[in-house]
Simulated scan of single mutants.
Amino acid sequence: MIFVTVGTHEQPFNRLIRKIDILKGQNKIMDDVFIQIGYSTYIPKHCQYKRFISQSKMECLIKMSTIVITHGGPSSFIEALKQGKMPIVIPRQKKFNEHVNNHQLLFCKELQKRGFPIKVVISENDLYEVINDMQYTENKKFHSNNKRFNQELDALVKNMFNS
């Protein structure tokens, strides 16, 4: 199963939801797909969805999933990392009216540059290739050191906002 979450930000993230739904409708994604669509206005035709889910439901869906796709909000992709899954992260972008600025994009690029175990996808047009690579990768999990990760993430966030 593939789990997709767009979080609870009030701007739609139709670009991600539409792309996943199209890939599922074209049978390019064969797995079951569940999407947490939040305030998005695009309604999936080929995937199961719900606007909002509880934290416990999200944890359960991540655990059941072979692939986790999230927006660039840290709480969503950190939950996947906590469960030993390497998430595909698609940051919301201002130019698509998905957020008020590009902080998700900048933050995710910085994390990836520093070697954090996330796959950042900037364009939804690259999503299929990344999903396909993940489906054929034997080990979709990574071996994490959560304590070190959390310390480095905390230091990075403090550094970004104190400078």
Rank of each mutant, 00 (worst) to 15 (best):
M1I: 08
I2V: 09
F3P: 00
T5A: 09
T5M: 10
V6W: 09
P12M: 10
N14S: 10
L16A: 07
I17Q: 03
K19V: 02
D21I: 03
N27K: 12
I29L: 06
I29S: 00
V33S: 13
F34R: 05
Q36C: 09
Q36A: 09
G38F: 05
Y39L: 06
S40H: 06
S40Q: 05
T41Y: 11
K45H: 11
K45G: 07
C47N: 05
C47I: 04
K50N: 11
K50I: 06
F52Y: 15
S54L: 11
M58R: 04
I62V: 10
K63C: 11
K63T: 08
T70M: 01
T70Q: 01
G72D: 06
G73P: 03
G73L: 02
S76Y: 06
K85L: 08
K85S: 02
M86D: 10
P87Q: 02
P91H: 10
K94C: 05
K94P: 03
K95W: 01
N102Q: 00
L105S: 03
F107V: 00
F107M: 08
E110M: 09
K113P: 03
R114I: 04
F116L: 14
K119N: 14
V121F: 07
I122V: 13
N125D: 15
D126K: 07
D126H: 11
D126G: 09
L127D: 04
Y128E: 09
Y128R: 02
Y128K: 05
Y128P: 03
Y136I: 08
Y136W: 11
N139H: 12
N146L: 15
R148Y: 14
R148C: 13
F149R: 08
F149K: 09
E152V: 01
E152G: 05
K158W: 13
K158I: 06
K158V: 02
N159M: 14
M160Y: 11
F161P: 03
N162V: 10
S163F: 14
